[in-house]
C-alpha cells in the first residue's frame, strides 16, 4: 500500500540536532535520567576496584583508605550520588507507570505506587546502612 503524496525530494524535513532536548524541561529530565546510567557504571567500577584492593590485602586496602580522603574523590562521589538520586526518583515514576497493579476492579493510582516505592526505598536504605555500619 502506497499513499505517498509527493516524491520524497519535494518535501522538507526538519532534523533533530545535538541540542534537541534543551527546549523542553521534560526532555532535560529524560537526558539526565539516561545519563545517570553512566554514573551507575562508574560507581560499579569504583566498587570493583575497592574489592580488588581488599582482596589484595591489608597493605593495598590501607592505601585505598588513604586515597579516598582526597577532595577529588569526594567531589566525584557527590556527583555520583546526585545522579543516583535522579535515578531512584525517576525510576519510581517509570516503574509504577509501567506496571499495572489492580486492586479489585480498579487500577491503583500510579502516584500511590510511586510514594510506596519511595517509602520502600527509604526503609531498605536504613536497613542496608545499618548492616554497613554495624554488621
Amino acid at each position: 500500500m502506497t499513499l505517498r503524496v509527493l516524491p520524497r525530494r519535494r518535501v522538507y524535513r526538519r532534523r533533530m540536532t545535538l541540542t534537541w532536548w534543551v527546549k523542553n524541561p521534560r526532555y532535560v529530565n529524560y537526558i539526565l535520567r539516561e545519563a545517570s546510567s553512566a554514573f551507575l557504571t562508574v560507581f560499579a567500577v569504583l566498587y570493583i576496584v575497592q574489592f580488588a584492593l581488599l582482596a589484595a590485602g591489608a597493605g593495598p586496602y590501607g592505601r585505598y583508605l588513604a586515597f579516598i580522603k582526597s577532595p577529588a574523590w569526594v567531589a566525584l562521589n557527590v556527583i555520583i550520588l546526585i545522579f543516583a538520586l535522579i535515578h531512584t526518583v525517576s525510576w519510581m515514576f517509570l516503574a509504577t507507570a509501567a506496571t499495572p497493579v489492580r486492586i479489585g476492579a480498579h487500577e491503583a493510582p500510579s502516584w500511590a505506587l510511586t510514594i510506596s516505592g519511595l517509602v520502600i526505598w527509604l526503609a531498605i536504605s536504613v536497613g542496608v546502612g545499618y548492616v554497613i555500619l554495624r554488621g
Binding site: 551507575l40 560507581f43 569504583l46 566498587y47 575497592q50 579516598i68 580522603k69 574523590w73 569526594v74 562521589n77 557527590v78 555520583i80 550520588l81 543516583a84 538520586l85 535515578h87 531512584t88 525510576w91 519510581m92 517509570l94 516503574a95 516505592g117 520502600i120 526505598w121 531498605i124 536504605s125 542496608v128 546502612g129 554497613i132 555500619l133
Partner: peptide, 20 residues
C-alpha cells in the same frame, strides 16, 4: 533499574562519601 534505585544511593553515601 529497580535494584539500583533501591540500593545505590545508600551505598554511595555511606561507602564513598560519609566514610572518607
Amino acid at each position: 533499574g529497580t535494584i539500583a534505585a533501591l540500593l545505590l544511593p545508600v551505598h554511595v553515601f555511606l561507602n564513598n562519601i560519609a566514610m572518607p
